[in-house]
Amino acid sequence: MNVAYFPGCSLHSMSKEYDMSTRLVCKHLNINLQEIEDWNCCGATAAHSVDHSLAVGLSARNLSIAEDMKMDKVMAVCAGCFSRLKTASHEIRNNPHMKAEVEQMLQSPAPVKPEVEHLLQLLVEETGLEAIAQQVVKPLRGLRVAAYYGCLITRPQKVVQFDDPEQPVSLDNLLKALGAETVTWGHKAECCGGGYAASDTDIVLDLGGQVLKSAKKAGADAIVVACPMCQGNLDMRQKAMGLDFRMPIIYFTQLMGLAFGYKPGQLGINKLFNSPTALLKSKGLVKE
């Protein structure tokens, strides 16, 4: 399967491990990722906060390049990038005024063809959980995790049309296919505070703190995420939140890689702030 890949800015710096593990897992599953050539930032969350046309335009340029590359599918792994690309695609397809504005900005026809999907959706709906389960050589037995979706992978439903907006199950099912156990908890689709990490940190400490406490209370050993913003907010700020959990916040692609038999170093496990190594070791999932 050929897929246009939009890594986004975070995957090139703060969240390299998400990029590393995404590429490895996709390659393993015969998903051929072709990075969108000369892509630009999706603008999240600044652009849509202050200039709607700019927000749509930035993503439209990326979709347009993917269309030029003859790709039917655009895949993002950052929930913020995914949401911006998906929203732009929805606007172009459903709002004739916006479509005209985009064509003026791009000075080319608006990209209507490429379908935008988050990697989670692609894996669950196209690769399929059975095919994924077949690749598992090291089942994540004994690992008790909280599957965290955050806001934008499943919302707004009208635009995203994937899973349930508030009670999603796709990531839980994927993790179960890898052999892990997922906890029942109340914050799987609540907000971590998102883009306020720098500009109004108290919001992140408040909302992210609630997510962490909820996962802990549900008995999770770690939280599994599918967004670099969620990962950063939950992983790097536990101390500032006044929590001494040291709870690992792991990308789902990293756990897939481990279950497929890759080494922690190949998956950037060492780049996480709260190291999951002791936890993984206690379950016999890593050696040293």
Binding site: H12, S13, N40, A46, V50, D51, A198
Partner: peptide, 30 residues
């Protein structure tokens, strides 16, 4: 919350200049 607006502006300045966001320089500038 002036800082929220400031952060949006600085981020978009960067996008307008280099097309992408460098988290390091954005935070330092902010």
């Amino acid at each position: 919350r002036p800082n929220v607006k400031l952060f949006h502006e600085l981020m978009l300045d960067q996008v307008q200049k280099i097309g992408r966001v460098s988290e390091l320089y954005l935070i330092l500038n902010y």
